[in-house]
Each structure stands twice: as structure tokens, then as C-alpha cells.
């Protein structure tokens, strides 16, 4: 576990509270990039508890966050020159919103940390500031009832904290809203790629093996040619669902995610088949079933990464999407195999 952000300690009521830096060093930035590519992602946490930033005293604000290092880094970077306390909840190294959904960033854990760190003895006020998205797991009135601390929900993004403070601790409508802009969607693509990559490799391998089958038995040359073609088509479907659909998300004029993926796949397949036709009509048609099925499935999985889909909505979409994807993949595969024989 990394601890080089601790730059000193503060003695208070005979307890020692670590003081942390408000500056992200090279290691922190590298760590963030690695986490984006899902490297070491599951072990990117810090110790829960109370930390100090700058020179806080008994009147300073208390900010709460998760023990996922990226959440913690976002917070401390935005508290530059703002003397404060930081209370870290044990969310098992998961970011605030996700942890709040699971309940680990929750009422119980917050109460436990308030009591364990003896917060009442450290400050002489009763205000504690939480990121707004923590509200999914925390019930402010219950925290108040048990600990006396009044939960104030801050902005969604830590970068709005200075404005939030200047604004007498109220977050504007803008600060309270979760947006999902282009740049943020792009940042999430690497993790999507890594998450689905193994299935792509598996599918490509299967097609390479099947491609050798023909009316004369098995041909390694054909396996290679057909497999290569299949690889290009599968890769197209993969990229369509994993990258293009997320990037163009609001511009594709349908609401269901699987349809977004499917529509893109039809355009891409059309272009590819036009310029690089397959060995038979059957094969050409087969790709119009397989590529959309692949792209639709992966795009559908982006519902989990997006910031606005409801469980009820996704369930409704899946009731239609899953059977369609299975039927399309099946028809496509049958046509493709028939295409190997004529």
C-alpha cells in the first residue's frame, strides 16, 4: 500500500493524525493511468481513518471520501491551500458512487468512522461534508440521530469544492448534476476494452479453427484466409461496441444501448463488405448478423459504465436484446458455415 502522500503528523489530544500532501506526484499520476487500464486496479487503496491537510484546527471542515486512491487523490488535489480534515471510509478500495450503491460507503461505516476517530473531540462543530453521490448509501438523518453530525452534501465533483465553499456550502444545480460528456466517456474506453478482450480472442480463435472446414475436409490455408477475414470483422464489431458506441452515445438516435451498438455495426459492416467482400454471398450476409450481435452485446454492457441508466430500464432492454443477440449470432454462424461449403 502506497503511503508516500503522508508528509508529517499532527498531535492532537495525544493522538497522532497523519498530514497529507495536496500535491500529486509522478507516482500518483502514473497510478491513475494504470488504474485506467485496469492494471493493479483492485489493489489501489489506502488506509481508512482521519487525515489532515494543511494545518486544520477545531474549526476546520471535514471532508469524507472513499478509500479508493483515485477518489482520495481527487479530493486532496482540490483541497490545495484549504486547511481541512479528511475522513476516509473503508469502501474496500471502490469509488464513492459504486461503493454507495453497494452500501460500503454507507450510514453504518460513516457512523463507525466518526466514532472510531473520536471526531467530536477533534472539532468543535457538528458539520461533515460528503460527496453528493455518497447519498446513495448514506442516510443523513440517521447519521445525525446517532452521532449528532449534520451531513452536508457537497458537489458531485471534487473540483467544485472551492466554489462550493465560497458559495456558503451550497452546491449549485450544475454542481449537483452528473453529466457524462465526451471526454469522460473516452476515458472509460480502455477499461471496457480490457474487460471484453478475452471474449474477442476466444471468438477469433474459434473462427480460425472453423474456417478450415470445407467440402474437401480440412484446409490449413483456408483456415488462415477465412480466419483472418473473420478476425477483421469481429474486431470491427468489437471496436464498434466497445469504443465507437460509447464515444458517439448521445448522437445515435435510439435510446436502447444495444440498438446503438447494432446500428453502428450495420454501417461498419456495410462499408467493410463493400470494400472487402467475402468468398460467398452467404458469408457476406452472415456478417450482417454476427457483427451487429457482437457490437450490440458490448454496447449493452456499457449501460453499467454510463451514468444515467436505471435498473428497470436495463432489464426492459435486455428482455428484447438478449434473445435477439442469441438468434442473430446463431443465424450468422450457420450462414457463415454454409458459406464455407459453397
Amino acid at each position: 500500500m502506497q503511503t508516500d502522500f503522508i508528509v508529517g503528523s499532527l498531535q492532537l489530544n495525544s493522538v497522532s493524525i497523519p498530514v497529507i500532501s495536496d500535491f500529486l506526484n509522478f507516482g500518483d499520476i502514473l497510478g491513475a493511468i494504470k488504474a485506467r487500464w485496469a492494471i493493479n486496479r483492485n489493489n489501489y487503496k489506502i488506509n481508512p481513518g482521519l487525515y489532515a491537510i494543511g494545518k486544520p484546527n477545531e474549526n476546520s471542515n471535514i471532508f469524507v471520501t472513499a478509500n479508493y486512491k483515485l477518489s482520495f487523490d481527487h479530493l486532496r488535489k482540490n483541497l490545495k491551500n484549504i486547511d481541512s480534515w479528511i475522513l476516509i471510509l473503508d469502501t474496500k478500495g471502490i469509488n464513492v458512487w459504486c461503493a454507495a450503491g453497494k452500501g460500503t460507503f454507507g450510514t453504518e461505516e460513516l457512523i463507525k468512522q466518526i466514532q472510531q476517530t473520536k471526531l467530536v473531540e477533534i472539532v468543535n462543530h457538528k458539520k461533515i461534508i460528503l460527496p453528493q453521490l455518497g447519498a446513495v448509501g448514506v442516510s443523513a438523518h440517521d447519521v445525525k440521530k446517532i452521532t449528532g453530525f449534520h451531513v452536508i452534501y457537497g458537489p458531485v465533483k471534487a473540483s467544485d469544492i472551492p466554489d462550493f465553499i465560497n458559495n456558503k456550502f451550497t452546491a449549485s444545480r450544475e454542481m449537483r448534476t452528473v453529466f457524462f460528456p465526451f471526454f469522460e466517456r473516452i476515458k472509460l474506453i480502455p477499461v471496457e476494452i480490457i474487460g471484453h478482450f478475452q471474449y474477442l480472442i476466444f471468438a477469433i480463435a474459434v473462427f480460425f479453427i472453423l474456417a478450415g472446414i470445407n467440402s474437401n475436409g480440412y484446409s490449413v490455408d483456408k483456415a488462415f484466409d477465412g480466419g483472418l477475414k473473420a478476425m477483421v470483422m469481429l474486431l470491427a464489431g468489437f471496436l464498434s461496441g466497445v469504443a465507437i458506441a460509447p464515444a458517439l452515445l448521445p448522437y445515435i438516435p435510439v435510446k436502447q444501448f444495444f440498438m446503438k451498438g447494432a446500428i453502428l455495426a450495420y454501417i461498419i459492416t456495410g462499408l467493410l463488405i463493400y470494400f472487402f467482400p467475402g468468398i460467398s454471398l452467404f458469408e457476406n450476409i452472415s456478417w450482417f448478423f454476427i457483427v451487429p450481435a457482437v457490437s450490440a452485446f458490448i454496447a449493452m454492457n456499457f449501460t453499467g459504465t454510463s451514468t444515467y441508466t436505471s435498473l428497470s430500464g436495463v432489464l426492459k432492454e435486455m428482455k428484447l436484446a438478449i434473445p435477439l443477440q442469441i438468434i442473430f449470432a446463431f443465424i450468422g454462424l450457420v450462414l457463415w458455415i454454409i458459406g464455407r461449403f459453397i
Binding site: 488504474a35 471502490i94 469509488n95 450503491g101 472509460l188 477499461v191 451514468t307
Partner: peptide, 15 residues
């Protein structure tokens, strides 16, 4: 129940 493994991340989203 639906469970999410939260492998993606960012401060902005889940799952």
C-alpha cells in the same frame, strides 16, 4: 441480485 464488479471506475461512474 444484480451485482456489479465495479472494475471500471472514475469519480463519475460505477460498474
Amino acid at each position: 441480485e444484480p451485482t456489479c464488479d465495479c472494475t471500471s471506475d472514475s469519480g463519475s461512474s460505477c460498474c
